[in-house]
Design a protein around this nucleic acid. Structure first.
Length: 423
RNA sequence: GGAGCAGUGGCUGAGCGGCUGAAAGCGACGGUCUUGAAAACCGUUGUGCCUACGGGCACCGGGGGUUCGAAUCCCUCCUGCUCCGCCA
């Protein structure tokens, strides 16, 4: 959420942000409602001032005047009620519009309409050249009997799957490796709840807007699509001590995504699925743009470190305005080389929000200098998401005979096993 | 599911119709002391909004009501705790 004062001062800036990010918000209407609401609140306050004044004098007044004062009060009460009604009518409209105002992207974000205009900023690792015809992860996985998509679909519908045997082991190995990697860097591990209240989804910026991308239960809870939601919201409505910041978390959770509107897109294999497991890093820091940027670079570097340890080739892109979420000021995606797609495929997404989420979550800290409560800054990045990351692992680590060499760093998590072969 | 109790400032916790925006303790911040630190002592310290910068208003879980006046009384909802039942 944006500070209304900023919108009042420079509405054009937010109109432009909405246009660049492809969000539809009626800023003019927001400003109109804001000024009416502000006016009504001011009047209401004046009436209350008067009411308090009259009320306070009543016990001291002689009986004759007392009656008159009580009558004045009755009149003031009537006026109070009128303005109260105006306020109660306008407030929800104001609130709803405020939730829709996007945060402008930072200056070094490329202007662009969609993901085709993201800008590559670095490329790391050699792309493997095969001296045999490589197979895709599905064919490999089925032949090795480490995944079963057919039965996943039979039981749970399209975009569902089983991992089995060494497939399940490899999945957990990657996740555990990623968690340990982050814990070694001092991040606090978390196993969060994933059934979230509507307001928590709103707090992190997913609602309103992404309801149809989300599984919702009969209890009106939403299955979060990422641990970013519970972990960023962890300190919702709290005031932290400046000295305790930054808070660094690493969470492992299952993620649920409806993938509505993606019908027919990436239907093959384990790329786009309804349920997966992800290790996510979340940082809550001070309200300081430089620190935010520095830590954003840190969480990006962490994920690169994981990919480098797995010896997977990847590139980093600076996501353009048209592909940014409402609250994100900047996002770097990491895309890992996937031979079957003959391209890099998104495996990580590092977003920086400044105070956008913290405002919605009412997540603050006490600034010792000004003694003011300031909104924190938040950011997050994937550490590893599996099974998507199994696509490059299986495909790049395959051998001519159809077996898979297990990446060295994962072997300790596979009981020392070095390869997955047909049994 | 049944019965009971409770929700107050960053935290713990008093208050139970006007004298209370709220005691006390802890924490935090500033100071004295110290080579430095700790301890001790002194002082400051709720949040949000509006402002003609003098102030004003709201907030004691949410909403509604009683009253001239409510943190305090009533209704309702939510949340937590305890006991019983049920399940594992």
């Amino acid at each position: 959420m944006i500070d209304i004062k900023e919108i009042r001062e420079n509405p054009e800036r937010f109109k432009k942000a909405a246009a660049d990010k492809h969000f539809n918000v009626d800023i003019d209407k927001l400003i109109e409602i804001d000024s009416k609401l502000k006016d009504a609140k001011q009047k209401l306050q004046d009436i209350l001032t008067e009411k308090n004044k009259v009320g306070k004098e009543i016990p001291k007044l002689p009986d004759a005047e007392k009656q008159k004062a009580i009558e004045t009060l009755a009149q003031l009460k009537q006026q109070e009620q009128d303005y109260n009604e105006t306020t109660k009518n306008l407030q929800p409209q104001f609130d709803a519009l405020m939730l829709e105002v996007p945060q402008p992207a930072d200056d070094d974000v490329p202007l662009g309409k969609d993901d085709t205009e993201n800008v590559e900023i670095k490329k790391v690792g050699e792309i493997r050249k095969f001296d045999f015809e490589p197979q895709d992860h599905v064919r490999l996985g089925l032949a090795l009997d480490i995944m079963d998509i057919e039965r996943g679909v039979k039981l749970a519908g399209a975009r569902n799957y089983f991992l089995k045997g060494d497939g399940a082991m490899l999945h957990w190995a990657v996740l555990r490796f990623a968690v340990d990697f982050m814990v070694a860097k001092g991040y606090t591990p978390m196993s969060p709840p994933m059934l979230m209240k509507y307001e928590t989804m709103t707090g992190t910026g997913y609602y309103p807007g992404s309801e149809e991308q989300t599984y919702r239960t009969l209890d009106e809870l939403s299955l979060a699509g990422t641990a970013e939601v519970p972990v960023t919201a962890y300190y919702k409505d709290e005031i932290l001590l400046a000295g305790d910041l930054p808070k660094k978390f690493v969470a492992l959770s299952t993620c649920f995504r409806r993938e509505a509107g993606a019908a027919g897109k990436d239907t093959y294999g384990l790329y786009r699925i309804h349920q997966f497991d992800k290790v996510e890093q979340v940082i809550i820091c001070k309200n300081d743009i430089e620190e935010s940027k520095k830590l954003h670079a840190e969480i990006l570097a962490n994920s690169e470190g994981v990919l480098q340890a797995l010896e997977l080739p990847y590139r980093v892109v600076n996501v353009c305005t048209g592909d940014l979420g409402r609250g994100q000021v900047q996002k770097f995606d990491i895309e890992t080389w996937m031979p079957s797609r003959k391209n890099y495929g998104e495996t990580h997404s590092a977003s920086r929000f400044y105070e956008f989420q913290a405002r919605r979550l009412n997540l603050r800290y006490k600034d010792p200098k000004t003694k003011k409560n300031l909104f924190c800054h938040t950011m997050n990045n994937t550490v590893i998401a599996s099974p998507r990351i199994l696509i490059p692992i299986l495909e790049l680590y395959q051998t001519k005979d159809g077996s898979i060499t297990i990446p060295k760093v994962l072997r300790p998590y596979m009981n020392g096993k070095e390869k997955i072969a047909r049994s």
